Amino acid sequence: MRPYPQAEAALRQLHRRFAKVSRRLDRRSRAGRRTWWTLFIAAVFIGALGGYALAATGSNAWGPLTTLRHLAAEPNCAAARAVGLAPARRGEPGYWPQHDRDGDGIACEPWTPR
């Protein structure tokens, strides 16, 4: 006969609960690793795609740094001025048609009040 049957039963029950919690945590950690791995692969893919795009556009006369400044100047004229590409003539880096309000071929030209 065993001396403490209730204690052994309580110990088995505690062991089962610990095993259940361990399995749940193991599933969560595997899911977390899977999520980080997916994000890492996506970041590598986007970086490779961006690098390819820079290499493809860098083959023009501007070069990759000027191409990046040209892309940074796209949102508005304040951004073009911030990267030092305003005013810009058609065909130059920093020229975007939406910044050329009067259609004269000069984007982000300085405006003087009348």
Rank of each mutant, 00 (worst) to 15 (best):
D26I: 04
L71H: 05
T35N: 08
N76K: 04
W62G: 01
P87M: 11
L49C: 07
A53N: 09
F45I: 15
H70D: 14
A80H: 02
T112H: 09
Y95R: 02
A86Q: 05
T67H: 02
A7M: 07
A55H: 11
P93E: 05
P3M: 08
L85S: 00
L49R: 10
P64T: 13
Y4L: 15
L25F: 10
L14G: 10
W111S: 05
P113E: 06
P64W: 12
A79Y: 05
A48G: 09
R23H: 12
V44N: 00
V83C: 07
P93V: 03
D100M: 15
G105H: 10
T35P: 00
G94W: 03
W96K: 07
S29A: 13
A78E: 15
V44Q: 01
A80R: 01
C108D: 09
E109N: 06
L54F: 12
T112G: 10
R33V: 08
P75C: 12
I106T: 10
R90L: 09
A79N: 09
P64K: 15
P3V: 13
G94R: 00
R34G: 12
Y95A: 01
L11Q: 14
W36M: 12
S59A: 07
F18G: 11
Y4K: 13
Q13L: 06
G51C: 06
R24A: 10
D102C: 14
A73C: 14
G58K: 09
P110L: 07
Q6D: 10
A72T: 02
R34L: 15
T57M: 11
I41N: 00
R34Q: 14
G47W: 02
S22P: 04
G32C: 09
A55Q: 08
L54P: 01
L85W: 01
A10D: 12
V44W: 00
T57H: 10
R23A: 12
R81L: 08
H70T: 07
R30V: 15
A7H: 04
W111A: 06
A42Y: 00
G63A: 05
L85M: 09
T57D: 08
R90C: 02
N76T: 06
V21A: 10
R17Q: 14
L68P: 05
A48H: 02
